[in-house]
């Protein structure tokens, strides 16, 4: 474990806490893409298949349970919670995310570290996570004005993988046989998707103005 990875995990956790806060405090999920949240449930379930077989550390196991539990809770809330589901902007959340699932799985069948069930699903989860934010980014552009908590949620979500890139650079230089090219390349693509969001987020922060994404 290194400081970059720990910072990345904490930033990821903060993004989830901010989203839960928004939903529970405002009893609203307006501006949040249910499709992105569903993709994250698939990402975590596919990635943490080794939850009960490989014990790495208490921290690792606890964080996996937190990520799986929180992503399921958010999807349950947006689909089932009477007050919250009414605020879901279904007509703005129109990205056909099934293609993202299909494309990531096909790519995982082609590009993986080992052709085993667990490795295929691990690579699938890595590729899917890289594109999982797309429905949310498209929805933000459609909805125009972005409320603060939603903006902060997306910001922390993008920042966490940027910390992981620093972690991979650090491990590359400090560990002899470290090679995580699948996670690294996918992480670069994932962070790149946030580039324009980060730009408009920075502008809104600098001008102390509301976050506006160009339609």
């Amino acid at each position: 474990m290194n400081i970059f990875r720990f910072a990345g995990d904490m930033t990821h956790l903060i993004s989830i806490v901010v989203l839960l806060l928004k939903i529970y405090a405002t009893k609203s999920c307006s501006g949040i893409s249910l499709k992105t949240q569903e993709l994250y449930v698939i990402v975590f379930l596919a990635r943490y298949l080794d939850l009960f077989t490989d014990f790495i550390s208490v921290y690792n196991t606890v964080m996996k349970l937190v990520f799986i539990g929180s992503s399921l809770a958010i999807v349950w809330c947006m689909r089932m919670h009477r007050a919250v589901k009414r605020t879901y902007d279904k007509e703005l959340d129109t990205f056909r995310h099934y293609f993202l699932v299909l494309g990531s799985f096909v790519l995982a069948l082609l590009l993986h570290e080992k052709f085993t069930f667990q490795e295929i699903f691990w690579a699938f989860s890595i590729y899917l996570e890289a594109v999982a934010i797309l429905p949310q980014l498209v929805m933000l552009q459609r909805s125009g004005n972005v409320d603060n908590l939603t903006g902060q949620y997306v910001f922390f979500l993008g920042a966490y993988r940027a910390f992981y890139i620093l972690n991979w650079i650090y491990r590359f230089f400090t560990e002899p046989h470290f090679s995580r090219w699948i996670a690294c390349l996918s992480g670069l693509v994932q962070t790149a998707f946030y580039a324009d969001f980060f730009y408009y987020y920075f502008i809104s922060w600098k001008n102390n103005a509301k976050l506006q994404l160009p339609a």
């Binding site: 990875r5 080794d50 990520f67 570290e113 080992k114 691990w122």
Partner: peptide, 10 residues
């Protein structure tokens, strides 16, 4: 044969 590297990252 690269050892099955356990994914120690989240």
């Amino acid at each position: 044969e690269s050892e099955a590297q356990v994914h120690d990252e989240l």
